[in-house]
């Protein structure tokens, strides 16, 4: 464990708790893409299947359990409890356009052709594009609530910090996982224009609004 990965994990945890809190407090999931949340749920379930089979550390197990629980709770709030506030007209990104190619790629490009490894690879690839429906929804509505932009900033920062973690681990531990690194770079690049808008607008107290 290194500081970059720890801060990254905490940023990730902050992001998902921020989103859950926003929906619960405002009793509304307006501006939130349910499709992205479903895909994140899929990411955690397929990646943390080893939650009960191999124990790595208390921290690892606890975080995995929290990520899965919060993802399921968020999906529940969006599609059941506050379903009336779910903006399905703007959350129109076709998930199958992401899940099918990612599933195929996981079969073709992986470290080990075993079920667990292919599911882990699928999870890594899916996570890199899971935010697209959310970014697409913001581009359609033309704006995002400030709390939602904080959620996106924390979520985007987590994988950016993981990239620094991988550089650190490469130089100090000689460890690197090309699949995770390439997917992590793609994932972070997708946030770039959002990061630019966040820094230039939200940081100056303005509302995040895309140029119409």
């Amino acid at each position: 464990m290194n500081i970059f990965r720890l801060v990254g994990d905490l940023s990730h945890l902050l992001a998902i708790l921020l989103l859950l809190w926003k929906i619960w407090k405002t009793r509304s999931c307006a501006g939130v893409s349910g499709k992205s949340q479903i895909m994140f749920g899929l990411v955690y379930i397929t990646r943390y299947l080893d939650l009960f089979t191999n124990f790595i550390s208390i921290y690892n197990t606890t975080m995995k359990a929290i990520f899965i629980a919060v993802a399921i709770a968020t999906i529940y709030l969006i599609y059941f409890k506050f379903k009336a506030t779910y903006d399905s007209n703007h959350d129109t990104f076709r998930m199958e356009f992401l899940i099918v190619p990612v599933g195929g790629l996981a079969f073709l490009v992986n470290h080990d052709f075993t079920a667990l490894e292919i599911l882990w690879t699928f999870s890594i690839y899916l996570e890199s594009v899971a935010i697209l429906p959310q970014l697409f929804m913001i581009s359609k509505t033309g704006e995002a609530e400030t709390i939602t932009s904080h959620y996106l900033f924390a979520l985007g920062s987590y994988r950016a910090l993981y990239i620094v973690n991988w550089v650190y681990r490469y130089y100090f531990e000689g460890f690197f996982d090309l699949i995770a690194i390439v997917a992590g770079c793609v994932q972070t690049i997708l946030y770039c224009d959002f990061f630019y808008l966040y820094v230039t607008k939200v940081m100056h107290g303005k509302k995040l609004s895309l140029p119409a």
Binding site: I56, K64, F67, Y162
Partner: peptide, 10 residues
């Protein structure tokens, strides 16, 4: 590959 070691990241 030592599966467990490599998969210590979240």
């Amino acid at each position: 590959k030592d599966y467990i070691k490599d998969k210590d990241e979240l």
